[in-house]
């Protein structure tokens, strides 16, 4: 046992509580000897467990179906390969290219794709609210929207390959962010004008931190619609925007 429990015997207890609640960091948690208290360790482990699960689990078929998404896959065949080979997560096979050319709307104003990325949890948590905000918003502005796609094992730049195959004007890629300990639900939206394979990252616009405690999905949806309108007007994205 330790002779001190700073959590109950600090010099200024109210200040300690305020510090612990004000900061997003894990402050003021005290110690047991040199080590953290058991409850602090377990809460840290719980957050890490959620983050790991977000990386390692898959988006459910039910979510994909309910959102009306057509499922395709990148060149990656499993989770291990996904993590070790980002290059393969950016490409699609010739069969997949043919599949989407056959099944999807050709040359839409906006092509929306959803990728599991590094967090299936982020996709599960956001797209039910985010997708209808996008489709409503695009409709209101008179943009045609392509067939909604879900890409398993997709990286950000797979939007270039898909956009090029479908000859879309603009692609919106909704992709799970690398989870942090604070949340595993964070999604990013990447937007590109005139997609083609090898298009530099700097020409992509991004809205990140989409999750219930960050930018709420519905608000993000309205923001993406605005940004697509700007991209459409300026015929450029990312650093091409003024």
């Amino acid at each position: 046992m330790t002779d001190i429990d700073p959590h109950t015997d600090p010099e200024d207890e109210t200040a300690l509580d305020r510090i612990a609640s004000a900061s997003p960091s894990r402050l003021g948690l005290g110690r047991s000897g040199t080590r953290p208290r058991t409850a602090s360790v377990l809460s840290f482990r719980a957050d890490h467990a959620q983050a790991r699960d977000a990386v390692l689990t898959h988006v459910s078929e039910e979510t994909i179906e309910n959102a009306g998404l057509l499922k395709v896959t990148s060149l990656v065949s499993d989770q291990d390969e996904y993590l070790a080979r980002p290059d393969r997560g950016r490409q699609i096979s010739e069969e997949t290219a043919e599949q989407i050319r056959d099944a999807c709307t050709h040359a839409p104003d906006v092509q929306i794709i959803v990728c599991d990325g590094l967090s299936s949890t982020a996709v599960e948590a956001n797209i039910a609210d985010l997708l209808p905000m996008l489709t409503d918003g695009f409709e209101e502005r008179g943009f045609t929207v392509g067939t909604l796609l879900f890409v398993e094992f997709g990286r950000v730049d797979i939007m270039d390959a898909i956009g090029e195959e479908l000859e879309a004007d603009i692609v919106v890629n909704l992709i799970g962010e690398r989870p942090g300990l604070n949340t595993a639900k964070s999604l990013s939206a990447y937007l590109v004008y005139g997609p083609e394979r090898g298009k530099p990252t700097a020409t992509k616009s991004v809205i990140s931190n989409i999750h219930p405690d960050g930018l709420p999905a519905i608000e993000a949806g309205a923001q993406i619609v605005d940004l697509v309108a700007t991209i459409h007007d300026q015929q450029g994205s990312g650093i091409e925007l003024t």
Binding site: G137, E140, A222
Partner: peptide, 14 residues
């Protein structure tokens, strides 16, 4: 008070 101004405006306009 919540962060939803653009979303509400988009829905209302629609």
């Amino acid at each position: 008070q919540q962060n939803c101004a653009k979303a509400l405006a988009q829905c209302l306009r629609a």
